[in-house]
């Protein structure tokens, strides 16, 4: 994919767990795209967001007023906030050309926490993800967020990673500008964003 022309609509799926800042990140990406004059639609499945359920956002960047849902196997990019959620959602929305950026820091489901089920070996999850897309970038975004000052800004690290990968119609400076508008923990968020950018650029 060249950096100058993008498919229209350009589709991004974010997969994660309630409480990871999924919704906030999709709004941020949308706001950044809007400043470039794009129409952006976000479809969110977050009925159970506050209770540790799976959460998925669809972001579509277009010149037209497209609908909020991405067709199956039609995402250009998968932003995974959690490994098994990335695999669960990626297997539905990715195709062999898709690119995935995934935070490999797990959030254990309740039955794993209490020792009734097992979380699959992380290498297995990674291999399966890799087999489903053209390119997989992995990082430990929680770790980087901690370095930035707060593990809860993991989502900002991931937005930074998306920016650093430079694969979407929204560019690094546009996203950085939106991040700098966050009032709570502004410095921490900017640090997290830059750590995300660097982490990806090292891998490019």
């Amino acid at each position: 994919m060249s950096n100058l022309t993008y498919d229209d609509p350009f589709n991004i799926v974010i997969a994660g767990v309630g409480g990871q800042g999924n919704v906030l990140s999709s709004r941020l990406i949308a706001d950044a795209a809007k400043t470039k004059g794009y129409f952006v639609a976000i479809g969110e499945t977050y009925g159970a967001a506050q209770r540790g359920g799976s959460v998925m956002s669809h972001i579509r960047i277009s010149k037209h007023d497209v609908g909020p849902l991405i067709p199956k196997h039609s995402t250009h990019l998968l932003l995974g906030f959690e490994p098994i959620e990335a695999l669960r959602v990626g297997s539905l929305y990715m195709n062999p050309e898709s690119i995935a950026i995934v935070n490999m820091h797990p959030v254990h489901p309740i039955e794993v926490l209490t020792g009734q089920l097992e979380y699959p070996p992380i290498q297995d999850v990674e291999n399966r993800l890799r087999s489903l897309c053209s390119r997989l970038f992995t990082l430990d975004a929680v770790n980087l967020a901690q370095q930035a000052g707060d593990p809860l800004v993991m989502n900002t690290v991931m937005v930074g990673a998306l920016a650093g990968a430079n694969l979407t119609p929204v560019k690094e400076n546009m996203l950085e500008k939106e991040i700098s508008k966050i009032r709570r923990l502004k410095e921490v968020n900017l640090n997290a964003f830059n750590l995300g950018v660097e982490a990806i650029k090292k891998n490019l």
């Binding site: 359920g53 489901p109 089920l117 097992e118 699959p120 297995d124 399966r128 087999s131």
Partner: peptide, 15 residues
């Protein structure tokens, strides 16, 4: 292949 990929993923019950 994709439909089989998540067969190692444990369910995420609401609690």
């Amino acid at each position: 292949a994709a439909s089989k990929a998540p067969d190692i993923v444990p369910r995420r019950l609401l609690t």
